[in-house]
Structures are given as structure tokens and as C-alpha cells.
Write a protein that binds this DNA or RNA. Structure first.
Lengths: 341, 341
DNA sequence: CTGAAAGCGCTAACAC
DNA sequence: GTGTTAGCGCTTTCAG
């Protein structure tokens, strides 16, 4: 490994000068500078990031914590985050806890031990919020990335997406198409994080004068294709009059598409389907999925921006930033309600 | 930040002793040990990873370099790698170059500067191989993760998958189903990395006495859904007698499925489709995709294993390890050839 | 079993 | 402009 000291020695200058050159700190004679640069290049010098991090008290990395990579939204978001942090000279460390508290603790401890300068958390509801609060109090920048409810900010900095509105938006679309018998598949338990999406949906229906009978029209579960498919089978078996199904996320919505295929139901003519998020998979399905798109890149950029503010001490009370509203994207999985039976 | 020195002072021992306790190095009296542990816990001590990395000359991280996260195979592999490295106490840094040589250089430089202890490279063909060789010569562990051709090992350690055989396997399946008019969509240029898959396919057909007319039956391009769809449209327009299409990867195969949907062609009855890899998307499509599955987790484990050998100096000449053979997975997108026209 | 001291490679005052 | 020096927090001989 080539060090600053070797370069200093071989060029007959001090380490400070070499260090200054390496960091473009000016105050170095042009001729000296060039001699140093030339030698550094020849020797293949690379600054030791750990030494730098040690002396500066901060690493050049950002950690992104998520409970599971299984959700295809994750890599899309991770990519957006990576792009954003790279622009600022940081590297991204991915931390998948796989819902394992031990892994999670290991990651949080490592970050506390300067593995990363700051930490981005995707599914805050699965993470030990108090451990994060603790880190934040010790001065480690923390940002929650996908807060579901702008109206109720958490105790930590976050970027919020108005998922209530996403649900409302999906409901309006279906209503406008004349659907009256609408099922819902919720990708979490009634106490879980998808509840706001569901409320937005439900309350919009109710405002339009439609009653929602939870026993007959709604299934709670979790956020996966399989869960969505099973739920759809259950729903359609118990309630064949359904002309549309809203799923609180694209994954279960894809499950609904599959269930329809299983049953030989033509989507959208016999059943309309709407999801939320607009993951890649949504437009790869046939028919492609109508969904309420979440501004992924914007959320990632905001999260990184907040993190940077925290890093630059521009603190105060926990910042919350709200993304643009989720937008309906109409594709092939929805159409006018079929003639009532 | 709590340091080892503070703990040493407050417990009246030396830093060396605290350090030994923290790393379970034995040789510390039980009672001292417990006093130290108790205080460390109370103070919320976390070892500084950068200091440790500096003094030991190696980081506790592994870098995974890929040209693009767009390929859905990437997150699947990344997850497998992350799991494998975590088991050994390492953290994973993701490095997406997005085919940008500057990004790539930035990442390689950072790793050379001890950002990571070792480096895993996914798409070796897109990466500046000489830069990697250089790193390897300087003693930095490097492993190429998905070498396509075991018969022609590269100059660096690697894990190889016999993709020639994958292509052959797909061809055999189609032949067995009675297909004679088979198109091929290659997810790279004729000089690119998918060429072995194609050769396996082509030569198997030829051994069975079928001629392959590249102009009429084959399209080269790149590895994406859209490219696959376009290629399929072109192929089917020029050659409607085709009863099956082989794609060198699942992504273009999904594109073929979409093209068939566009044209109102019933898969598999009017057109059979086979891909390679078995990404998640493959079994989410309807009909689900028949494909030749690559052992992702095994490849990831092997890559990490080779890396660890390199780390433990168990060197010698570049190791190559070959995964189990790719396996055909029959799903809904293939069936017997339709009556010849 | 425990301690003292050197030093990993770099940055950041502060002198010259 | 350039050099000197004191650490950053930790591990690692080597003594005791």
C-alpha cells in the first residue's frame, strides 16, 4: 500500500503538503503539486479511507436499512438512494435485516461504531424505533424514508408520502368507472403500516354512499404476491359479485391478477384491479396494472437531502418533508364496471 | 462517542485489557472482565470500526460491483451475497456503476483505498478487467461472480456457470416437444457475454439435424424486456412459422411473452417460450415462464468462499469454481409443437 | 493475567 | 508555500 509518507519522502516534501495536494486544498506551489501528482499516479496511490474516516470522525458511507429485500420496491429505492448519495461522494452500505432482530442490532451497532456516517431506514415500522432514537440523540443522522402518514409525524426526521391519498385516489378511479362492488386486500394487519391506504380507500367509498362490509369485502394479511392471490381467491369465492379489487400495494395486486388467471376471469372486463406504488413489475404484467404511483426517486432524493442537513448540523426539530402526491396511472387492469348482475 | 480509553480509565485498567475483553481474547480475569462489560454496556460503547480497520489494514466490508441494478437478477444475487458475507461478519457495499466508467473508477479506487477488504464483480465483461488485475496483483482479493464459460477460465479467480449447457438444455427441451421452427433472441451482441448460451442452443439444434438460419431465426441485441419484445416482433413478423422462441435470458423471454400478448398469440399453444436464469419474475408471469434455472445462492456462496480463501492467503493460481449445472424448470410457457402448417 | 508503548495513514492546527 | 507535530481509537508486541 502506497502512503502519503512515501510520496512525501520521495518528492522531498512533507506529508502535510502531499495531503494538501491530494485534497486540492490549494496553498501548494504549482511545480511541487505536479511533481507530487505525477509520483502519486506512478505509484498508484489511493488515500486510505479508514484513516481519513478515523481522523475526521466520520465515514464516507451511508447505511440503508430495510427489513427485506424481497419486496421489489426495495431495489428500486436502493438504486435511487445510491445515485443520490454518490453525487455527494458517499458510498452505500446495504443492510437487510430480513426481519431478524439480531441482524438489525448488528447493523445499528456497526453504524454507531462509525461504519456509516448516517442511516436511512426504509420500513420504520419493523425497526426498533427506540434504538434509532437513541442513535439520533447521540448525534448520528437518521432518516425514516417512507412514512405513511404526513398528518402524524414521527419523532425522527422523515420523508412522508401521503398514502391515505393514494388509497383515496384508487377508490375514486374505481367509483368513476362505475364500480359498486369493490373488494380490498390490505398488505398488512389492521394495526400495520398499510392501514392508511385502506382508510383512504374506505372513507372515499363511504363518502360516495357505499358501505364497506369488512367481513365480506376486505382481507388483511401481508405484503406479498402469494398473500394477495390467496386473499383474492377467498374474496371472490365468498363474494362473486365483486367487479373490482383494490390492493394496498402492487405485490398483492399482482397476486389478484394471478388469481383471476387461475379462475379464468378476464381482467379487466370481469374484474378490475388497482394497486399502489408502481413497481416495475406493474407494467410488465399483462394486462399491465393500473396503480397509484409513488414518487420513488423524489422520496429518495428528499431522504438524502434531509440526511445531509442533519450532517451539516442544520438541526432543530426533526424535519419532515412530504413528497408530491401519489399519482394514478391507468393501465390495462381497470375498466368500466360490467353490467350489474 | 465512548472509547476504549474512557472505559479503561473508569474501571482502572489499561486499554489493552479492555480491548482484549471486547474481542473475547481470553487472558482476562473473570471479575475484571465483567466489570468492563458492565460499564461498556452502560455507556453504550461501540468499537470504532474505522480505527480497527486502520490498524488491521483491512476493512470489515466487501464490495459488490455490478454494471446495472436494472437487471432483476442483480438484487437476487446481491441478497444472496449479503447473507453469505454477513455470516462471516462482513458488511456489503453495493457499487452500481450504471455502465459509467467514472463511477466504476471511483469505486475501484475506493476499494483500493481500503473501503472494502475484497471485491466481488458481477458482470466482468463490462468492467475494466485490467484495473481488476492490477488490484489483484496488489493483493486485493477479487472474484468474478458469473463467468459464462468454465472451459475458458479468466486470469482472475471466479465462479463459473456452464451457460453453454444452459442453452443446450433449453434446446433439448424444445426438440423433445417436437419443435422444429425455433427462433432465438440473444441478449448481447455476437461478441458479448451471452454468446455461449446461444452456441449451446445452436449446436444442439444442429446435432439434431436442424439448420439454424441466423438471418431468419436469430436476433442479437441486449438484455432487457423491451429488447426482447422488439426482437420477438421482428422475428415473428419475418417468420410466422416459428413455433417456439428461446431467449438467452429471462428478461428478453418476458419480452417475448409480451409480444405474444400484443399479437394475440396464445402461449404456449401457438408459441412456446424458454428463458434462462429463473428470476422471480419468471414464475410471476401468466403463463409462468419455462426456464433454465441458474443456482444463484450456490454461486453467491461460492464467490464468497473463494473471496475468503483469497483473504486467508490460500492463494496459488486463480481459483475457479463451477456451480452445479443449470436445471430446466418446466412451467406454462412451453408445450408440444402445434401441428405443422 | 495486566500494562506500557508503538504505530496504522491521515488531517488539522500552528509554526516557519 | 511548506514543515512539524499531535492525535483520531484501536490492536499488538513485549514486559512484568
Amino acid at each position: 500500500m502506497v502512503t502519503i509518507a512515501q510520496i512525501a519522502e520521495q518528492t522531498g516534501v512533507s506529508v502535510a503538503t502531499v495531503s494538501n495536494v491530494m485534497r486540492d486544498r490549494g496553498k501548494v506551489g504549482k511545480e511541487t503539486r505536479e511533481r507530487i501528482l505525477a509520483l502519486a499516479k506512478e505509484l498508484g496511490y489511493r488515500p486510505n479511507l479508514n484513516a481519513r474516516a478515523l481522523v475526521q470522525g466520520r465515514a464516507q458511507t451511508i447505511a440503508l436499512v430495510a427489513s427485506s429485500i424481497a419486496n421489489p420496491f426495495y431495489p428500486e429505492f436502493a438504486q435511487a438512494v445510491e445515485t443520490a448519495v454518490r453525487k455527494l461522494g458517499y458510498f452505500l452500505i446495504v443492510c437487510n435485516t430480513n426481519d431478524d432482530p439480531e441482524q438489525e442490532k448488528a447493523y445499528l451497532d456497526a453504524v454507531s461504531g462509525s461504519l456509516a456516517h448516517g442511516i436511512l431506514v426504509m420500513n420504520a415500522d419493523f425497526v426498533q424505533i427506540d434504538a434509532l432514537l437513541d442513535m439520533h440523540n447521540r448525534g448520528i443522522p437518521v432518516v425514516l424514508c417512507m412514512w405513511e402518514r404526513p398528518q402524524e409525524p414521527p419523532a425522527l426526521p422523515c420523508v412522508a408520502v401521503d398514502f391515505y391519498q393514494a388509497g383515496a385516489c384508487a377508490a375514486e378511479h374505481l367509483l368513476k368507472l362505475g364500480h359498486k362492488q369493490i373488494g380490498a386486500i390490505v398488505g398488512s394487519l389492521p394495526t400495520g403500516n398499510h392501514i392508511w391506504r385502506y382508510r383512504g380507500f374506505k372513507e372515499t367509498l363511504e363518502k360516495a354512499g357505499l358501505q364497506v362490509d369488512e367481513a365480506r369485502q376486505v382481507r388483511f394479511g401481508h405484503d406479498s404476491i402469494d398473500a394477495g392471490r390467496n386473499a383474492a381467491h377467498g374474496l371472490l369465492a365468498g363474494n362473486p359479485a365483486l367487479t373490482a379489487i383494490f390492493a394496498t400495494n402492487d405485490l398483492p395486486a399482482v397476486g389478484v391478477l394471478q388469481a383471476a388467471a387461475d379462475l379464468g376471469l378476464q381482467v379487466p372486463y370481469e374484474l378490475s384491479v388497482v394497486g399502489v406504488t408502481d413497481i416495475q413489475l406493474a407494467h410488465q404484467m399483462r394486462p399491465a396494472l393500473t396503480t397509484v404511483a409513488v414518487p420513488t426517486q423524489e422520496a429518495a432524493d428528499m431522504a438524502v437531502a434531509i440526511l445531509m442537513e442533519e450532517i451539516q448540523q442544520a438541526q432543530g426539530q426533526p424535519a419532515m418533508r412530504i413528497t408530491a402526491a401519489p399519482q394514478l396511472v391507468v393501465r390495462g387492469s381497470t375498466t368500466r364496471a360490467r353490467a350489474s348482475q
